[in-house]
């Protein structure tokens, strides 16, 4: 029985494939990209722990052959914080959606970033609540549509990267389901960053976001990513007006700050001497 490429056989619970995402959904591309990043870094699979919340994105860990945890809506980062602090040797990766991470999970996002705990968070950002059938989310662009924004979304969307940067994340980047090679590199650098890393991975949702907003088929949505993404390194070359309706991808922030579990280990050391 043919069970996929070497990458898939090595890293997936193949008997659980094919996954549940719709035809043309970008999440499968992102999940593979995350897996390829893990493979490229040849991490010890026994020590990789993937945590997710609730939503389309968050079904990913079930398919991935690691220590996997599918938690409650919005709470992946809080669960992951407990895992990382309790066992820092684990490489903790959070896979979450735009709604899961920035709506109900917003409080946990800004605090995990503020702590700069060594967790790599990949937001499968498809600008919609897919699992519940197409409601608009905190990243749905203004004036666009969702089943709960039948007259156009009046909310202003988050820039997830700026949000994470402002809260204290030390690695922040954005990739897309089209620019897969770049995304793999961004995830690798995020995993290698000893601190809180956030990668905003723009996905496509033809079934709801695409249909509701007349973005065409999966192929058209992929071409949109291809034609409207501008790499942060190239931004200066573009006049302002052109950038108006483009979006910027690439690495935005890569700094080093004290990492939470390292700081806690210093306390453990300090306390040990107290009790000699």
């Amino acid at each position: 029985m043919n069970t996929g490429s070497q990458l898939i056989k090595n890293n997936f619970r193949v008997e659980k494939l094919p996954h549940i995402w719709c035809p043309g959904c970008g999440h499968g591309i992102l999940m593979r990209a995350v897996t390829e990043a893990i493979e490229n870094l040849n991490l010890d699979k026994k020590k990789v722990c993937i945590v997710s919340g609730i939503g389309c994105s968050s079904r990913a860990p079930g398919y991935m052959d690691f220590n996997t945890l599918h938690t409650t809506h919005g709470r992946a980062l809080a669960f992951a914080t407990g895992i990382k602090l309790a066992k820092p040797e684990l490489k903790v990766i959070v896979i979450t959606g735009d709604g899961d991470c920035t709506a109900i999970g917003g409080n946990h996002l800004i605090h995990a970033a503020r702590r700069n705990i060594d967790i790599t968070t990949i937001v499968f950002n498809n600008n919609i609540y897919g699992m519940t059938g197409g409601q608009y989310s905190p990243t749905t662009p203004k004036n666009e549509f969702g089943t709960t924004a039948p007259f156009g979304n009046i909310d202003k969307a988050f820039d997830v990267c700026k949000l994470a940067d402002g809260a204290g994340a030390t690695y922040v980047a954005r990739g897309t389901a089209y620019h897969v090679k770049q995304l793999i590199k961004l995830v690798e650098k995020g995993i290698n960053n000893k601190g809180f890393s956030l990668i905003d991975a723009i996905s496509i949702c033809p079934t709801y976001y695409g249909r509701k907003n007349k973005k065409g088929l999966a192929v058209d949505m992929m071409n949109y990513l291809k034609d409207n993404a501008v790499d942060v390194k190239a931004v200066k070359k573009f006049q302002k007006e052109i950038l108006e309706d483009k979006f910027v991808i690439g690495e935005f922030k890569n700094t080093t700050e004290p990492e939470y579990t390292d700081e806690y280990n210093k306390i453990l050391e300090k306390v040990k001497h107290l009790h000699k």
Binding site: V51, L69, T71, T72, R75, A78, F79, A80, T81, G82, I83, K84, L85, A86, K87, L90, N107, H108, H111, Y264, L268
Partner: peptide
Amino acid sequence: KFIQMEDEIAGIAATIGGSLTG
């Protein structure tokens, strides 16, 4: 190890996370 989380929901979430590591 001890951690003060950002709210009670995060408190029990992290507690469950701690338990999952044994």
